[in-house]
């Protein structure tokens, strides 16, 4: 079991303490000479550079795989063919009822507790690449909020959010398309928004209330580290039970501890849970990315992982047999 540990950088390695005699030698020299600080520093730079010369290093780590990438092309083309074939010839399945996870129920309850007069801040914090997944989750939720008569605002934290907000609102069929408010400054902006109770900071865009005034803050996220920024810079300044989240499937694991600690009241991760959520809210689920194609893609990955295990076991067995023979 050793190789992987060394490979990924977890093997304890040992540093060699500097030789004491070397240090003592240096001090003697320094005492004998009266040097300016800058001269000393330059001498140190040169000493380091000279020390680098001829220093023994083990060979650089080279990728074990062959440079030829034919297997990449074969797998890529096979997968593309399977997905395109499914898209063209297999109809998408009807949505099935299934067990609803606790975090989805928690989000549903929080949404249904919202009423007319409540204020909700919808934070759009995802990249154009994941917009299809995010829109399929967010559009039914926005439709629900709009139907409830809840007063809501759209906040975007990155420039592309300005057009993503238009896309989301028009897909959800919300008219007129609400104006998206741009919050500059990344984590600095999030922090400024969280602490500013009087809306006095020039940094904050007009039309936005203090975060404490919102009954709920609905995060639409596709990045774990960006989600963490909201949990670290904004959540400590607000009472518990404010944050709700719709996250891309890739962030499902990241949200787990924050949901368990109560910093997020409820969340939905991925299109499947998004469809469940839409049903629970009495909305029509969005047209998902073709579910059968998604299943085909997942099965391909399963087969690949199993093949990887089998071929490695086979290679190990062959190696052992060879060793036994010699």
């Amino acid at each position: 079991m050793e190789p992987i540990v060394a490979e990924v950088g977890m093997q304890p390695e040992v540093s060699v303490p500097p030789e004491e005699s070397e240090t003592a030698e240096e001090q003697r020299v320094a005492q004998d000479l009266l040097l300016l600080r800058s001269q000393k520093e330059r001498a140190e730079v040169l000493r380091n550079l000279i020390a680098e010369e001829g220093k023994a290093f083990p060979p650089a780590h080279k990728p074990k795989s062959s440079h030829k990438s034919w297997y990449r092309l074969v797998i890529g083309l096979l997968m593309l063919t399977a997905l395109i074939g499914t898209l063209l010839f297999v109809p998408p399945p009807a949505l099935k009822e299934g067990a609803v996870p606790a975090h989805v129920i928690a989000l549903q309850e929080a949404m249904q507790a919202l009423g007319a007069g409540d204020k909700v801040l919808v934070v759009l914090d995802y990249q154009p690449a994941t917009s299809r997944e995010m829109v399929s989750m967010a559009a039914p939720v926005l439709q629900f909020i709009a139907e409830r008569g809840v007063s809501w605002q759209l906040l975007v934290t990155q420039p592309s959010g300005l057009w993503l907000a238009q896309e989301l609102a028009s897909t959800a069929g919300i008219t007129p398309i609400p104006e998206a408010i741009y919050l500059p400054g990344g984590n600095l902006g999030v922090f400024a928004l969280a602490i500013d109770q009087n809306q006095s900071s020039p940094l904050l865009p007009s039309g936005l209330s203090a975060l404490n005034d919102y009954r709920a803050i609905l995060l639409l996220e596709d990045s774990g580290s960006q989600f963490q920024v909201w949990m670290e810079q904004a959540s400590p300044w607000l009472g518990k039970g404010r944050f709700l989240a719709l996250v891309a499937k890739q962030d499902a694991a990241m949200v787990l501890p924050y949901y368990d600690s109560g910093q997020v009241t409820g969340y939905v991760a991925g299109t499947q849970e998004g469809a469940l959520m839409a049903q629970l809210l009495g909305q029509q689920p969005m047209h998902l990315p073709h579910e059968r194609a998604l299943q085909v893609g997942l099965i391909i990955m399963m087969v690949i992982l199993i093949l990887s295990m089998i071929t490695k076991a086979e290679a190990d067995a062959t190696g052992r047999r060879r060793e036994e023979k010699t």
């Binding site: 093997q11 390695e13 040992v14 540093s15 303490p17 680098e52 290093f57 060979p59 650089a60 780590h61």
Partner: peptide, 19 residues
Amino acid sequence: YSGLRHTSAVRSTEILSQA
């Protein structure tokens, strides 16, 4: 620096720079 585990990936950056 004595008595500390070194991260091999960081040490490899040195090796790579030498190479």
